[in-house]
């Protein structure tokens, strides 16, 4: 059903272009291939990631939206819910029952009526409020809990790097 997936991805792209959520840009890297997108996410205001512009890649499966895409930041990141290779680990990217991190049962899950926009908005909330219970990056989770000042310093450096400002 790659045809249905393509139709849906085109509809979502159109929706995101006509009605972009604040601080988020997303679309296919190359319009020849709608199954690989790039997104730029602005660090939420009032958080240690404020001002940063973080690039990420989204890879969609052929049966999208029955199954969710995968998302990976392509810049350096240091965050409890992001693996060291940039992969994002939040509940909306997983169907119920698929529990790599033992998500709470109340957490938002993937279903065919979710969307790229909802994922990206969840990622923005994740940047603002890390979930230190599900440690994709254990060091970051520990530092977030125990040494917030150090965490904020690292975040600030990452923000400067995404903007090309010397750190």
């Amino acid at each position: 059903m790659a045809g249905s997936a393509l139709r849906r991805l085109m509809a979502e792209y159109k929706q995101l272009t006509l009605n972009p959520p604040e601080g988020i840009i997303a679309g296919p890297i190359n319009e020849e291939n709608f199954f690989e997108w790039e997104a730029l996410i602005t660090g939420p205001e009032g958080t240690c990631f404020e001002g940063g512009v973080f690039p990420a890649k989204l890879i969609f499966p052929p049966d999208y939206p029955l199954s969710p895409p995968k998302m990976q930041f392509t810049c350096e990141m240091f965050h409890p819910n992001i693996y060291s290779d940039g992969r994002v680990c939040i509940s909306i990217l997983h169907a119920p029952g698929d529990d790599p991190m033992g998500y709470e049962s109340s957490a938002e899950r993937w279903s065919p009526v979710q969307s790229v926009e909802k994922i990206l908005l969840s990622v923005v909330s994740m940047l603002a409020e890390p979930n230190d219970e599900s440690g994709a990056n254990v060091d970051a989770a520990k530092m977030w809990r125990e040494n917030r000042e150090e965490f904020n310093n690292i975040a600030e450096k990452i923000v400067r790097r995404t903007l090309g400002i010397p750190t």
């Binding site: 029955l66 199954s67 169907a95 119920p96 029952g97 049962s105 109340s106 938002e108 899950r109 993937w110 279903s111 065919p112 009526v113």
Partner: peptide
């Protein structure tokens, strides 16, 4: 539990294979 009907739908009805 303390789930709302909408939560229940998002978690138990709308996703495939549930």
């Amino acid at each position: 539990g303390d789930r709302t009907v909408a939560d229940f739908c998002h978690q138990e009805v709308e996703p495939m294979y549930k």
